[in-house]
């Protein structure tokens, strides 16, 4: 597990990663197992809500269906929130913490180029995000089986993947800021702030006329706008999230390559 930066970075997560995975799986399991019991009540309750709030909470047409229930209960808020916490924390820290603590100098005194460190750290982040997504999906699938909820496993996988791509985009944003500045707090702050802004932009845009044209600037739109839980993964939207991520990787590589490392 110590033969390169990628594996070493994964190894550093060998305690936290299982906790993340199990936590995500249990959350998903819990929510979906409750559907047969509270799904109906829940739908009644939501129908009493002002329509605008319902739109904000996911904008799913059929809220009484398992898809509608899951959209509102976990995919509208909990899933992106947790993915963002995971990836922003990781992306903002993985290189910046080494720089702040002083291990980066020693690491780079080895014959390994800076761009390779960035690429391997990014790859580790991508793998970790996908593993957590896998656990989330497993929780959903097991829960749906136990509670006899009629829902497509594939669609759940697609919605989960969409969430992972969203998380990866914001994690890479944090990584890029960290690579450009070397500052962990700053990179996490910037990525988290932009995450919150784009969450609300996407949520409010259908309700507020002046915001509507800007909705497509929000990465959240490409996460849930096409309702992957019902319609499957929108490849165009997924490509935009992925393209945004790769663009940020390029920013990270270029800025990290060019600057002075902090002591």
């Amino acid at each position: 597990m110590l033969s390169n930066v990628f594996l070493k970075t994964l190894r550093d997560c060998r305690r936290s990663l299982p906790l993340w995975g199990i936590g995500m799986a249990l959350l998903a399991l819990w929510v979906i197992v409750l559907y047969p019991t509270i799904g109906g009540i829940y739908a009644d309750y939501l129908e009493d809500l002002p329509p605008s709030l319902a739109i904000f909470m996911g904008g799913v047409s059929d809220i009484a269906s398992p898809e509608g229930y899951l959209s509102i209960e976990i995919f509208s808020f909990m899933v992106p929130l947790l993915f963002l916490v995971l990836t922003i924390g990781f992306g903002g820290s993985t290189i910046a913490r080494e720089e702040e603590r002083g291990t980066l100098d020693l690491l780079l005194s080895n014959p390994i180029s800076r761009w390779r460190v960035v690429v391997e750290k990014f790859a580790a982040m991508a793998v970790i995000t996908m593993l957590v997504a896998l656990f989330l999906w497993l929780g959903l699938a097991i829960g749906a089986t136990i509670a006899n909820v009629e829902i497509s496993f594939l669609r759940m996988a697609e919605a989960t993947l969409s969430g992972a791509l969203l998380g990866l985009a914001f994690g890479t944003l944090a990584l890029a800021v960290a690579c450009a500045t070397g500052k962990r707090g700053l990179s996490i702050g910037v990525a988290a702030a932009l995450g919150i802004v784009s969450f609300f932009l996407n949520g409010f845009a259908p309700l507020v006329e002046v915001l509507e044209p800007y909705r497509k600037l929000s990465p959240f739109y490409y996460y849930s706008g096409a309702e992957p839980l019902i319609n499957g993964l929108n490849l165009g939207h997924a490509a935009i999230l992925l393209g945004f991520t790769l663009l940020l990787v390029a920013v990270a590589l270029i800025t990290f390559e060019r600057r002075d490392l902090a002591v």
């Binding site: 002083g102 291990t103 100098d105 020693l106 780079l108 005194s109 014959p111 390994i112 180029s113």
Partner: peptide, 16 residues
């Protein structure tokens, strides 16, 4: 890269 391959480096207040 070639230089670092042939060089050993150590600093005073090193963190591992």
């Amino acid at each position: 890269l070639e230089i670092r391959k042939r060089t050993g480096y150590m600093l005073a207040d090193l963190t591992l």
